[in-house]
Amino acid sequence: MSDGLDGLRRDVALGCRVMAHRGLVENILGHISLRIDGGRALVRCRGPRERGLRFTVPDDVRVVDMDAGEIADDRAGDYAVPSELPIHTSVLAAHPDVECVVHAHPPDVVVASLAGFALEPIFGAYDIPAAHLAAAGIPVHPRSALIRTAELAGEMVASLGEAPALVLRGHGVVTTGADVADAVLRALQVDTLARIHLRVRAVGSVPGAIPDADLGELPDLGSAFNHETLWRHHLAALEQDGLGLT
């Protein structure tokens, strides 16, 4: 493609691969959108030879008209937008400051939501961004429906409110960010919270939130550490396991 969006398509494709590599999605489920301008976004779509998010290539990432809900580039071909595209269109419309939306189905998050417990900041320095995310509160959307309509998406947006992450009960997670890395890393933080909660409960203990004094001693280590460096790690892990983009 020669529309000047190759780099952004690559970002979305790598984000999909990282999600699959880290177990946030299984097989062909899950998608990422990245805003281009007021009415368009790059969206991970599904083609005639779909192989799943682990094998996403830039050609799977298409320009989508967010108002029309359809592919808007010259090479639509046999590609189709995700059935839950309203997740992306509704969040991007409601939050002009959001650039990227992630929807994934992390199994531990699904289990935790079905168990009915909140993802509290039960740890501190183990994962500081995750602790702060939990301390701010991660809302839970009570419905497990496939979000295919504007009405269902509107309910989901209402549950999200101003939070950067939302658990969909019995379904998965929606996270937002300033770019692909930001939104995917946030989804990983939610997954970490759910996984540690489940492990503590598996040994017979009920975890509680850490004291406010401890939370206050968890500094923001800055985007260079929490964002750029961590994202390079995940991309390097893809390369090591033969899942990088050539």
Rank of each mutant, 00 (worst) to 15 (best):
A135P: 02
E151Q: 12
G222A: 11
V102G: 03
A187V: 03
H31W: 11
D6Q: 10
V43W: 08
A134V: 08
S83R: 15
M66N: 13
D37L: 04
E162F: 11
A118F: 02
V200R: 03
G161C: 01
L85Q: 14
Y79V: 06
A72G: 09
A187G: 07
S33F: 08
R17W: 00
L166S: 14
D191I: 04
P82F: 07
V63H: 15
L152N: 14
P142W: 00
I32Q: 09
P106N: 03
L53N: 14
L166C: 15
A163Q: 00
G30N: 10
H105C: 03
A145T: 12
V63G: 15
I87P: 14
A80F: 10
V25L: 05
R201N: 05
A135R: 11
D214E: 12
H227L: 09
V98R: 07
I71T: 04
A76K: 15
N27K: 12
H88C: 15
P121Q: 10
E99I: 04
V173L: 02
V98S: 05
H105W: 01
T192H: 14
V111I: 11
L92M: 05
I32M: 04
R54H: 06
R9W: 15
T246F: 03
L29R: 01
A125C: 03
T246Q: 03
Y126L: 06
L119C: 13
V180N: 00
G177A: 13
R54A: 15
D73T: 12
A131N: 08
G204Y: 01
S83E: 11
I138A: 02
V200F: 04
A125T: 07
V203W: 01
Y79T: 08
S113P: 06
R199S: 08
E50D: 09
A112Y: 14
L230V: 14
M156S: 14
V173Q: 00
P48Y: 09
G39N: 08
E162P: 05
Y126S: 07
A94R: 09
I87N: 10
W231T: 13
P106W: 12
S2V: 11
N226H: 10
I28K: 00
H132A: 08
P121D: 15
H234A: 08
V81S: 11
H233I: 09
V184P: 06
I128M: 06
D67E: 11
S90F: 07
V57N: 00
D73V: 08
H95A: 09
D67H: 10
I196P: 00
G7E: 11
V91L: 12
G124Y: 01
R195E: 15
P142V: 01
S83F: 09
E84A: 15
I71K: 06
A76T: 03
R62Q: 14
R186P: 05
F123P: 01
V64N: 13
H95V: 06
L146P: 01
G23M: 04
L193N: 10
T229F: 09
R35V: 13
S83Y: 13
G38K: 06
V101I: 13
E217W: 03
S223P: 05
